[in-house]
Design a binder for these strands. Sequence first.
DNA 1: ATTAGTTATAGTCAAAATGACTAGAACTAA
DNA 2: TTAGTTCTAGTCATTTTGACTATAACTAAT
Lengths: 214, 214
Amino acid sequence: MIFALRPSERSGRPTLWIPLVRRIREPFKGLWALPGGPLTHSESLPDAASRNLQETTGLAPSYLEQLYAFGGLHRSPTQRVVSIVYWALVQPTEAALAAESENVRWFRADRLGELAFDHNAIIEYALWRLRNKMAYGSIAYHLLGEYFTLAQVREVYEAVLDRELDPANFRRQVKATPEIEETDQYLQGGKHRPPRLYRFTGRPGLDPDNRSTP
Amino acid sequence: MIFALRPSERSGRPTLWIPLVRRIREPFKGLWALPGGPLTHSESLPDAASRNLQETTGLAPSYLEQLYAFGGLHRSPTQRVVSIVYWALVQPTEAALAAESENVRWFRADRLGELAFDHNAIIEYALWRLRNKMAYGSIAYHLLGEYFTLAQVREVYEAVLDRELDPANFRRQVKATPEIEETDQYLQGGKHRPPRLYRFTGRPGLDPDNRSTP
DNA sequence: ATTAGTTATAGTCAAAATGACTAGAACTAA
DNA sequence: TTAGTTCTAGTCATTTTGACTATAACTAAT
């Protein structure tokens, strides 16, 4: 389950996109589905998630966290399947060079059709978690590059939370978080006053996962 | 992973307790461990968690939520094990009639020795999640019975967060949450002014799990 | 060169939430 | 009757939040 920012087709503003893969076998042959694959005996859960992500889409996550273990009895019509789902955020530079093909394509997170298995529900839950985490923790920065303007951060929040935020108040809040560091660089090339660039100095999170894999 | 409130041995105030089972085989024979067991083909994840809980301790959870899937390579010295851990809250009435025995015993959550496998780390994470959930959501009530006083709620918070809270301010906050309903009953039998009884009217949570199992 | 247009940024002010505290109400036990 | 205890309502200063105003700094058009 991968999230990335891409400019909207119409407005050009950043919106949330998700890469999906086409099912080439039954069940649900032809439908779009989340990328995934089996867990081997010699890899940890996050390693397996990263590997599957890499193999199917060529993407490398800047943030990876366990979402949930789905184990309902009828998730697949043919057999019992338990899926330990991870969700990842990737930076725009990464997302841009992701390999799209006949069977791998990006979709807007809010405009998905019917997917295979229970993947619609999984994505819904992942979106809920993403919004939740953004409201509290400092996670939005993993969707951006190393340097960013405060307006870009605000656009991320606006895209994910789907509502407009007051620029002045938002900037006040972000500047109050200690993990945001002011640089002395400015983003040039706009059609107006150049905004200052900032960077994020915090570390990902407090998952049990996020301890070095020995 | 089960949490329940029991009166502290010394102060008599409610504290967090956890039931553990003794390992009767290798590996870690003789050490205490979290209750658990295999997942069968015909039960969902929460059903399996409930069943294992019932079989090992005789407890029925008033709240059950998925904690995390642990899948490190070296969790067990003998084989690769992936554990999808659930955590439960049980009410004091339930907890009182739990079957203690030679191989099942309650421990204070903050005074555990060395446990089998990675169970110390799992419990640490569960405690972190419990504290987190309590700070935001309305979960403390599942550790109490149907009727409770505001002082009892405060004691739960104090036990879990491990710090004292101002009674007056705490009461103001709790009374502001819409899920708390005032009854016209009072708790009699204390040595002082009898406190009013309240009840919790909210529903558990927003887990993907918490949808009816068909 | 000047002006209009746009975004960046700082600051003000009222409303709401929080933390520390006071005081009376309502019971039990001596 | 009084002392001791907790319950409960309320005050007040501080902090946080939301709505808003105003100036700064740039580009593009005239």
